[in-house]
Design a binder for these strands. Structure first.
Length: 580
DNA sequence: TTTATCATCAACGAACCGGA
DNA sequence: TCCGGTTCGTTGATGATAAA
């Protein structure tokens, strides 16, 4: 007596401690559904209503379940359950009480004993039902009311008999798989998932049932859709739940990764093979084409360079290359100092750098006077310093070229001269990095700076877009991110012009910056140097040359640019000559 | 009757793919 | 390389059904 009430007490107590239904189930050894049912007997609204009715009847003097049942139309078995659950003792008919209950109790206990023996001997639940001629509900009922002295609960009985069924099937059938097991047995997925984690003993060795009972499609790492089709489920999600609850999830993930890797390796191999075939093919074609060149050097060289690259798209067309090498051959033959500029013009290649690149691909030296070029791109030491700040800013070479006001190639050339050529690639890649960061097509800080300056100068938006050739969406993005981008530009400008740190507060080139730029150009520096040494007393070009260390031509050039009257010895002589 | 379980759906984000 | 679309796996919500 009181077993039901005790269990309900325990359930409610554990629940008030915040335990989940699963935990309560583990703790008191009852099935999840049983626990819900027990709880409802005492707490559900309907049960409470019935309890109220029963109590009223008891107060009216109806003490037995039968009497109450007559009045309330509640079945007397249900009245007994509610009374039990709430520890209400009902009167019973005297003569029926002892005889039937005792007898009942004894036979029921014997029945449970028999059932457990059958379970121990490896019978399945269905077999037990057949042998005892009982229904599962009846057995469940027996455990609920007469199971005090049993070794196990109904839940445990079901687990054991289900496990019996699994082991039996494994012994009888070869290659039985979880999916077909699920279809053919009444065991739930969850129960099956638990059972396969259990161990069985074979030749003294304990092995998980999982090792014998699994699904091939899980091991093969099939996709959820494939698994769904295989089991005949309606959704990917259900298939995933299947894999999960049957305890195969980890295995599945692992298999999928393995499969992915194999595929990747295969692709790599395939790619390599294709590449090799391509190379071989190119070699054959090259050989054949070379023969068709009839020993013409320019054609041969063009072909060799052209085929060296593994791509056709974006390649400089073969005709242009032939023209280039023909021009080179001609210039060399006649000893003409032909610059990249000239060569580019002749063969109509897009840029000088492409010309230079293709000369170096053919292993050829430049024809023009390199020294002369170098002279042109010479910069002042201050500018050099500023260029090197690029390594500390987020600017690309294109951006910094704008902010320092020097051509882009000068910047990159300077890095090479400073033996920092490695950084060139980093700086070039900056373009992509910043574009990704701001998510604006063809983004550059240069463009941003130009836009913000134009806006501050009150130029109309439409005009800005047109002049700077910016599409509408990009332009809007530039405006939207103005605060953020401006901050970055201002920081960059401060890095380049540290002496103006306190004055730079606009994201573009201000008057002060431009003044500094002007004063640092080679022209300005040279003119200043010449003026300075003249002030110091240099009275001839050769003296100036001695003092500042440049060629006569250079000094004359800059003196002319700066409108300086050179205290030239020869000139004086000429002047003296002229009157004569 | 109540609730666990089965089943499906929509939404989401990451990974992937393929054309421009 | 970039961009937009697609696929795939995951998650939470919710309805339907069967078991306790």
């Amino acid at each position: 007596m009181g077993r039901l009430a005790d269990n309900i007490d325990k359930i409610l107590e554990l629940e008030s401690q915040g335990k989940t239904i699963d935990e309560i189930s583990e703790s008191i050894g009852l099935g999840i559904k049983t626990i819900s049912a027990y709880k409802a007997i005492r707490t559900s609204k309907k049960a409470l209503k019935k309890l109220e009715l029963i109590r009223t009847e008891i107060l009216r003097g109806n003490k037995t379940a039968e009497e109450i049942s007559k009045q309330t139309k509640i079945s007397h078995s249900y009245i007994n359950i509610i009374a039990n659950a709430n520890r209400i003792i009902l009167k019973r008919k005297k003569h029926a009480k002892n005889a039937i209950n005792k007898k009942n109790k004894k036979t029921k206990t014997d029945l449970l004993k028999k059932i457990e023996q059958l379970a121990d001997s490896g019978k399945t639940f269905d077999e037990i039902l057949a042998e005892t001629n009982k229904s599962s509900l009846e057995i469940n009922y027996c455990y609920t009311w007469y199971g005090q002295k049993s070794q196990i609960t109904y839940k445990q009985l079901r687990y054991q008999t289900d496990k019996n069924e699994v082991i039996r099937t494994l012994n009888n059938e070869k290659n039985i798989r979880i999916s077909s097991f699920v279809h053919n047995s009444g065991i739930s997925l969850k129960q099956l998932g638990k059972i396969v984690e259990d161990e069985i003993e074979i030749d003294g060795e304990k092995i998980k049932i999982k090792e014998f009972l699994y699904d091939d499609f899980v091991l093969e790492g099939k996709t959820l859709i494939e698994i769904q089709k295989h089991i005949g489920y309606g959704s990917r999600e259900r298939a995933r739940q299947y894999v999960n609850t049957t305890g195969q999830y980890d295995k599945w993930v692992e298999s999928k990764e393995k499969k992915k890797k194999i595929k990747k390796d295969l692709n790599n191999k395939k790619e390599q093979n294709e590449l090799n075939t391509k190379k071989a093919l190119i070699e054959i074609l090259t050989e054949k084409a070379m023969k068709d060149c009839n020993n013409k050097w320019a054609k041969e060289t063009a072909l060799r360079v052209y085929l060296k690259k593994n791509k056709i798209i974006n390649q400089v067309p073969l005709e242009k290359l032939i023209k280039l090498y023909e021009a080179y051959e001609f210039a060399k033959k006649h000893n003409i100092s032909s610059s990249l500029k000239l060569l580019r013009k002749y063969c109509d290649i897009n840029s000088e750098s492409q010309v230079s690149h293709h000369l170096s691909l053919a292993g050829l030296k430049l024809l023009s006077n390199y020294k002369q070029n170098k002279e042109i791109t010479r910069i002042s030491s201050k500018q050099k310093e500023r260029i090197l700040t690029i390594l500390e800013t987020v600017f690309s070479s294109k951006d910094i070229s704008y902010f320092i006001n020097l051509p882009q190639y000068v910047i990159e050339q300077q890095l090479v001269l400073e033996k920092k050529s490695k950084n060139i690639n980093i700086i070039r890649k900056k373009n992509r990095k910043i574009r990704n960061k701001h998510r604006i097509q063809y983004f550059s800080y240069k463009k941003a700076s130009e836009i913000y300056k134009a806006i501050d100068n009150k130029i109309k938006h439409e005009d800005i877009k047109e002049i700077l050739e910016i599409d509408n969406t990009s332009y809007k993005k530039y405006l939207k991110q103005r605060a953020n981008i401006s901050q970055i530009i201002i920081q960059g400008l401060k890095n380049i012009y540290p002496e103006l740190t306190n004055k730079i507060n606009k994201p573009y080139l201000t008057y002060e910056i431009k003044e500094i730029q002007k004063s640092e150009t080679r022209k300005y520096v040279m003119i200043k140097k010449i003026n300075d040494v003249i002030d110091q007393g240099a009275d001839s070009v050769s003296k100036i040359k001695q003092m500042i260390g440049h060629t006569n031509e250079t000094i004359k050039k800059y003196a002319e640019l700066g409108n300086i009257d050179l205290p030239q010895y020869t000139r004086k002589k000429q002047k003296q000559k002229n009157p004569n």
